[in-house]
Design a binder for these strands. Structure first.
Lengths: 237, 237
DNA sequence: AAGTGGTCTAGACCACGTC
DNA sequence: ACGTGGTCTAGACCACTTT
């Protein structure tokens, strides 16, 4: 484990358990250097991650203030899999695999997903239920050249866990788009819903070497959708 | 201007104008050091910002690859004011100020906005129109102790421009939440819409010293709403 | 083997807030 | 005046990719 990650993890844990409560200051950078026996740069790297994630705010001349975490991360903030979210929130959810197929990308699908025409992809459709009620329908397309094997068992559990921990893939970044769309009859059936609208999240997901391995459409029941975000002002636009 | 900002701005501009086209590599860190006459750390700081914003992807042993920018930033990605967005996208938009009042925060409003009860805040209601059609209704609450003066003229133009460039305020970060809500009769009137739903974005906005100065509810017409995001996978959750 | 980015260190000076 | 974080530099070694 890298040193700055260890410092980050330790600080994060101490913030979570109120060793450093909200509204108070973290130790100074100098004190953290001594505490962990690392250089200032390493301390600053750890603090930079905490800052980026909205856990602290640094104020020049004053210190690093711990921020209140009033809002919970729910379904789609950042790039986190459904399984990881429900685990971290300890929600009672159930995943049902509706279908799993190996298909060939036609030109329409290529345009939508970003995959090459004539390439093969896995198409996985799954529903997510909370308290026995369907709240999300996910349709995943996974590059078959990057993900040679896909099974019902894997789709039933966590695809991301399989890709990262079994295949050793480096999932790096995603471009996503959120809109609200009218529902089709089929979507109403899958979502067990009469609503005229649903929230649609389209994502293209890439590996560390910039190869795209996934395209996903995530359809959320409109009253179950909540997106929480922490944003920093971008000076020097 | 800080050196790393100058390097960042220059690289960003060269990416935008295809001096460094998508899918190609930026010069090496060593070459950028020589080019700008700065240290490696400074180069890396600039590259870190480009990475964070999804403009490049660094691959060890290979270089810094320029990513395709297929998706445009629209209404609410990050922390950018409406005025800045429409300026950068060169949209034909019109802002209409519906009301501007100085009010006292009651306990309900305190709970909603995060402001202290009995404190005074400016309440500003504005509509945003594109092609003569209202697409967004913004309701802003601004701390009167931090923003002593507010006028129709300022509300008509850009409040953020006024706060940053006239008052010298350091707008730093925001927590936001996006949901879909049923519309009230009043909202349908303001949005000139028959829709049963709208997209609601609630934001609390803070200064660099962690004082909250703004709470905003932004109501988007459902078919005009589009949120685009770039996300990096958070290892070491 | 050579070249690239990733991590870590040590030290200097500056800008800002507090005392 | 002092302490804090912000910026910048120089150098070392490691990990990964390409030739």
């Amino acid at each position: 484990m890298k040193k700055y990650q260890e410092v980050y993890n330790d600080l994060k844990e101490k913030i979570r358990t109120n060793v450093y409560p909200a509204e108070t200051s973290l130790p100074t950078e100098q004190a953290l250097q001594d505490l962990y026996g690392v250089s200032r740069d390493t301390v600053r790297k750890a603090l930079a991650i905490l800052t980026e994630r909205g856990m602290i705010q640094k104020v020049q001349g004053r210190g690093s203030l711990v921020l209140k975490q009033e809002l919970l991360n729910f379904p789609v903030s950042g790039l986190t899999s459904y399984q990881e979210l429900t685990d971290s929130l300890q929600l009672q959810t159930k995943t049902e695999v509706i279908s799993l197929d190996l298909i060939v990308v036609n030109s329409n699908l290529a345009n939508l997903t970003g995959f090459e025409p004539y390439s093969k992809v896995w198409k996985v459709v799954r529903t997510r239920s909370i308290d026995g009620k369907v709240s999300v329908v996910d349709t995943d397309y996974l590059s078959a050249s990057l993900v040679p094997t896909m099974t019902l068992d894997i789709a039933q559990e966590s695809i991301y866990d399989y890709l990262e921990n079994q295949l050793g893939m480096d999932i790096a970044y995603a471009q996503k788009e959120i809109t609200v769309e009218p529902t089709s009859r089929e979507e109403r059936e899958l979502l067990q819903s009469q609503d005229d609208y649903l929230v649609l999240i389209k994502s293209r997901v890439y590996l560390g070497d910039t190869r795209q391995f996934q395209y996903t459409e995530s359809k959320h029941k409109i009253d179950k959708f909540r997106f929480v975000d922490f944003a920093r002002r971008k000076h020097s636009l």
